[in-house]
Design a protein around this nucleic acid. Sequence first.
DNA 1: AAGGCGGGGAT
DNA 2: ATCCCAGCCTT
Length: 397
Amino acid sequence: MLRPAGEARYLPRVAHQPDNLWIAAALVAWFGQSARELPWRSAVGAPAGCRRDPYRALVSELMLQQTQVGRVVDKFRAFIEAFPDAATLAAAPEERVLACWSGLGYYRRAKLLHAAAKEIVRSHGGVVPSSVGSLQGLPGVGRYTAGAVASMACGQAVALVDGNVARVLFRIRGRDATQGDAADMAWAWEDAEELVAGAAAAGVDVPALNEALMELGATVCTPAAPTCDRCPVRERCTGFAQSRQSSIPRPKPAGVRSVITCDAVAVLDDRGRILLEQRPATGMWASMWQLPTIEEAGRGRRDREKVAAWIGLGDADQLRRLERFTHTTTHRDVRFTLWMYRSAAVPAGGGSPGRVWKSRDELGDLGISNAQRRMIARAFESALSTGGATLPVRPRR
DNA sequence: AAGGCGGGGAT
DNA sequence: ATCCCAGCCTT
């Protein structure tokens, strides 16, 4: 019997999931009615042959890695305004890129995106490549991100799997998966590729299907308490049929959260400037600016003499404690103590080479984590409310 | 294969 | 409090 080349290869796989075409069609139809309006879904700037600007798609996908949509929207708009294309981004100093990434977290992504822009200029003539292979060769672009740009921006019929897609597929198939498990993610990729192959063969809009899977995971098929009464594929969902939707995937065993104790010192001069230092280029808050800060594992506290000595400020009596708070991230608790150093005499170099005075107006041009921004704001507020009687201070010559 | 990397929304 | 998010890179 004659059949087209290649058909025999995937036909058994399609037959393995006979609901796939129905599911794909239902998802695409639902997405047409339910899609949120998001800035990176605009067709603005899309070159011929693309539904969206691949550069904007790349920026949005990097920002969206492990980060929820609601926290990205405004940052994305500002970033695109500052760096409207790959060439502009490639030519920008890293300082400005990190400033635009402030508050988003996972700051390595900003450096990787910056490097990707340079690579796009050097090797791709300033045009974001459209093949999965070329995309995945860019810094910061893995299998998911490459699939997302190739599919949703460039219209290609390739699969993509992120946390949302994986969860949706686990539930539809009734797979007893564990959150973040590598074998389960591999299964999800195979399942998504099978779904996409069948959809493409039937003429279904694959980019819309991919985006529908993600949108469903983000808005309906949510991790806890999915709203199945709003789900377009409920009637073909094994998890729902078995009332297991809320226990798929199983949560990963909780990891141990380490504790770090930090003492940060705000030093202001009589011109309203504040003393800052830049963190190392790797590790937590890489290359971000901060108040002079001591960082130590564990929950031990330093007294004011020790803080003054470690920070390199001479007069411990001028150190006043402003606040304590705990900054919690996924992997650790960072216990901050914020100090104000009020003295007419600040050691040369702020007590340590590499520290610089920055005015309040300049802070927007610097990469600064949210925890540090909070403390800096508190310090300025305190200085203003206290008045000039004991402040400001002047750097010692 | 496992660990590191932010910050906040949802529950 | 705990979980997880449009993941990726390094070891």
